[in-house]
Structures are given as C-alpha cells and as structure tokens.
C-alpha cells in the first residue's frame, strides 16, 4: 500500500500576464502576474479525507486544478499515487475524479445518462460496464428519476450530484471534491456526507481532497485540515488540534434540577481547559449536592474561529509588509 495518495512539494503557482513583453513593447498597460500559491507542501495518506479551507481566492481551486493536471505549477511538484502531475498527467487523470460545482461542465441538451455515458467512454469503459456503473451511481446518488432528463432541465442540487457521479464513474482511488454539498438540501447533504465517509472506509479506500466553505462539514468529515490563505498554507492539523490553536478553553453549560432542594432547573456555566478534570469534578459535586443532570453543552472554538484568526493575522502581516 502506498503511504501518500497525494504528495505536494514546495508547490508555487504564479499566473503569468499573457503577452507581457508584447504589451510592454506597444506601451499598453501590463497587469502584474498573480501569485496564486506559494511554497505549498503536504501529503494526504491513502484513504484519508483531507479538508482544504480558506476564503474565496485563497488558492483552493488552483491547488485542486494542479492536482487534476488542468493547470501546470510554476515550481514544485504534485504526485498522485506516485505519478507526477506534469510528467505523467494521463496516468494521474486515470487515478482521480474531480467534482466541481461548475454547472457549465456538462452538455445541457443531453440527458444526465447521455452525459455520463460520454464521459464513461472517454474513460475507456465498455458500453456494458458503463451502463451498469451509471445505474449503480444513479441509485447511490438518488438520481434515477432524472436519468432521462436533459441536464439543462435539472435542479441545481441534482446537477451537483451528477457532477459527483461523473467524478466516481471510473472508480478512481482519489477524489477531488469541490464543495460537494453546496446546493443540496439538508437531507441530501447529509446523505452526501455519509457517502463521502463510506468511500474513505471501503476496501480499497478512496482518498478524498475536500474543499468546502461549510466548516462544520469539514470538521465532521476530515481527518486533517489545511487552512489556506493568500496562496499559503497557514496551518495543517487535525480539526481538534486546529481548534485548540485559537483557544485552549471550553465553555461548559450544565442544566440541572433539584440543586439544594429547589424544584426549578438551573443553568450553571464555567470555563475549563480542554481535556482537564474539571468537568468530571464539577459534575460529581453537583450530583453529590442532590442535583439531577439534565443537559451538558460544550462550547468549543470552531474551525470558523481558527480561520478568522488566520485571516486577521494575515491582515496584520500585510500591514507590516506595506510599512
């Protein structure tokens, strides 16, 4: 078994200004090249769900497209299951499936079935296997009802699910999912999350690089999360560790009844260090005082707080750089 399904080393990407010298020669205004990624390095182990979070324009899409071989890096390298994304791009494309929220990537006048059939043939599947696979995917993603509907006539949520189905067509060992639940209703989103989790757990497992603005989703699904901002990885760790980076304390709210003989319920709040014994001791004290524990709520820092801190840090950094 390979250790890393995706390995990214010192990856930088600067989008050049097209025809820069020609424009300069004709004294036309020349835009500065755009630096989208700077020195990004990380590994995703086989079977892991790896989250990539960051604000719009942070570099998530560029990173995903480089992994998918659609954009070439300026420096550094990406390898997918041991294949370099530039030198062995065709092999890399065999190993990955990309689902984006881009609706325009399908043929609107074809039905969802015809669309998938086209891409299945490009993946080299025979018609018999392709039909069977499409049937399986339609069942798995609850798309049977819209199999014969033109793509242009489908709801946004179904289009989104079809994009995921297309990414899974050739059973790739690596999936790149760009906001897979963005347009889904809450029930469909929950089922999609369940599907993502089950893919990572099956044998052989599917490695998933998940980019999302839904931080709760990333927190629930991902084994490790990278925070990307202005093209740089600011932090990379498990969601638990990332949360503890911003605040080591947790706010605890305990609802009790019967405390000191009172019949009314009361809410007691206190702050504790994550992982200490205080919660255990407090609960024991309350129970020995005759209280009945009705509810315990824990208010922890979320990935949102972490993201916010890094973005604020960035602003400060930029101000210093400008000075």
């Amino acid at each position: 078994m390979l250790e890393s399904a995706i390995s990214i080393r010192n990856l930088s990407k600067t989008y050049p200004t097209p025809f820069r010298r020609l424009r300069a020669f004709f004294r036309r205004p020349v835009k500065e090249p755009v630096e989208a990624l700077r020195d990004v390095s990380f590994d995703v182990r086989e079977g892991a769900i790896f989250g990539l979070i960051g604000r719009n324009g942070a570099g998530k899409t560029t990173l995903t497209k480089i992994v998918a071989t659609l954009v070439q890096p300026t420096t550094g390298s990406v390898s997918v299951r041991g294949n370099d994304s530039v030198l062995h791009d065709e092999q890399v494309r065999r190993e990955i499936g990309l689902a984006t929220a881009e609706e325009r990537s399908f043929y609107w006048r074809l039905t969802s079935e015809q669309n998938l059939m086209f891409f299945a043939r490009l993946h080299g599947l025979s018609d018999r296997i392709a039909k069977q696979r499409i049937r399986e995917l339609f069942a798995q993603l609850e798309l049977e009802e819209v199999a014969r509907r033109r793509f242009g006539e489908m709801s946004t949520g179904n289009k989104q699910r079809l994009a995921v189905a297309r990414a899974m067509l050739s059973n790739p060992p690596v999936l790149l999912l760009d906001e897979p639940t963005r347009s889904l209703d809450p029930l469909a989103a929950a089922r999609m999350r369940e599907l993502i989790r089950s893919l990572a757990q099956r044998d052989p497992p599917v490695t998933i690089l998940l980019t999302s603005h839904n931080l709760a989703e990333v927190e629930t699904l991902c084994e490790r999360v990278a925070i990307i901002s202005r093209g740089r990885i600011r932090a990379l760790d498990t969601p638990q560790h990332l949360r503890s980076l911003t605040s080591k304390t947790e706010q605890i709210h305990v609802t009790v009844s019967g405390l000191n003989g009172s019949r009314d319920s009361e809410r007691i709040s206190f702050t504790r260090q994550a992982g200490d014994n205080e919660l255990d001791e407090r609960l024991r004290d309350l129970q020995s005082g005759g209280a009945r524990i009705l509810d315990v709520e824990v208010e922890r820092a979320t990935l949102f707080d972490v993201l916010e801190v890094y973005e604020r840090g960035d602003l400060n950094l930029n101000q210093k750089e400008n000075q």
Binding site: A68, L70, E90, R93, R94, E102, F106, W108, F119, H123
Partner: peptide
C-alpha cells in the same frame, strides 16, 4: 464557450 473543455481534458485521453 460551453465550459466543457476542462471536463473532457480531465479524462485520461491524450
């Protein structure tokens, strides 16, 4: 113009 070129080039074809 349709936006489908990327999805075609994403498949393992040369």
């Amino acid at each position: 113009m349709q936006g489908t070129l990327e999805s075609v080039l994403l498949t393992p074809i040369n």
